[in-house]
């Protein structure tokens, strides 16, 4: 099933919270340089898939493989899976797991090239817009305390590069005027765009957007669709998104995955999904023309 042109492949992913089965044995691929959307009714487990992909949850079982610049990475292994009894017999397994558990964590996921936004916008509210974007670029900066304190040439150069990069994305998303404003003082629509800019500032290969159009009006949604398409075409980024706005999903995505009750009930091109009987059943109550 894994094809060479997929950037993210989810294999038999199962997630359990206590006794609740949130995801049961789901598998799908996200094609490189595409826009893939995940839809489904509330509580279908979409955000759980995202949290597994971006390293905030460790899946109960199953693999998520990501084609990073440094080769194929398995997400749960990278964050450090929980120990099982077998590990205590095999020292090599034990120590690899221990190493990842101690020195790794969800932050590694961003470093291999997956960025995300959040359903409830999570900005650094008491920092300025530009600072928000600088935080996203910290991997590129010089962390040396001495060169930072004395503001050496090389430190300054890197810092300026990052500032320019930040302004580039602000420009792209139409936020240049708000560069020095506090992120907490922005209007809602702008916070969504800022979060997207911040995710893009980490120079990811794959960007996961959790309901990017939620709360936006029709015009803003249209603009967002344009930006997302640009991300794919201009910046060669793969976009993987959760969205409830069907018009937008149908408009921009090449592939749609439909989740219901923690299972993939359909996947395919927007046209196929529109006519899929199972999907219509899952969305019972939503009229045909909206789908």
């Amino acid at each position: 099933m894994p094809t060479s042109d997929s950037v993210l492949s989810i294999k038999n992913l199962t997630m359990r919270f206590g006794g609740i089965l949130a995801l049961s044995d789901i598998s799908f691929n996200v094609k490189k340089n595409s826009i893939t959307a995940m839809i489904g009714p509330n509580g279908a487990g979409k955000t759980t898939v995202f949290n597994c992909c971006t390293g905030f949850y460790i899946a109960t079982s199953g693999d998520i493989e990501f084609e990073s610049k440094k080769g194929l990475k398995e997400i749960a292994t990278l964050i450090g899976r929980d120990f099982i009894w077998g590990d205590f017999i095999s020292p090599s397994k034990f120590f690899t797991k221990l190493y990842y558990k101690m020195f790794s964590g969800s932050f590694e996921i961003n470093r291999i090239g997956i960025a995300r936004t959040f359903q409830n916008v999570r900005l650094f509210k008491e920092m300025t817009v530009i600072e928000n974007l600088l935080v996203a670029q910290h991997q590129k900066l010089n962390w040396n305390l001495f060169s930072g304190t004395f503001n050496t040439k090389s430190y300054q150069k890197k810092h300026e590069e990052c500032i320019d990069q930040a302004f580039f994305w602000l420009d792209k998303l139409g936020l240049t005027k708000d560069a020095q404003a506090l992120a907490g003082s922005l209007a809602y629509g702008k916070t969504r765009r800022l979060e997207l800019a911040r995710a893009m500032c980490t120079s990811p290969l794959l960007v996961c957007l959790d309901e990017p159009a939620a709360g936006l009006n029709a015009r803003e949604t249209e603009e967002l669709s344009g930006i997302i398409k640009d991300l794919r075409d201009e910046f060669k980024v793969t976009v993987f998104l959760i969205e409830h706005d069907m018009r937008m999903v149908m408009d921009i995505s090449e592939k749609i995955i439909v989740l219901d009750h923690g299972e993939v009930i359909a996947e395919g091109a927007p046209k196929d999904i529109q006519s899929n009987q199972k999907v219509i059943e899952a969305y019972l109550g939503v009229s045909d023309d909206e789908l």
Binding site: G105, M127, A199
Partner: peptide, 16 residues
């Protein structure tokens, strides 16, 4: 400061 504002967002930015 980012950590103080939002730890989860911080982690998603690749900050250890």
């Amino acid at each position: 400061e980012a950590l103080r504002e939002d730890e989860i967002a911080c982690r998603s930015m690749g900050i250890n």
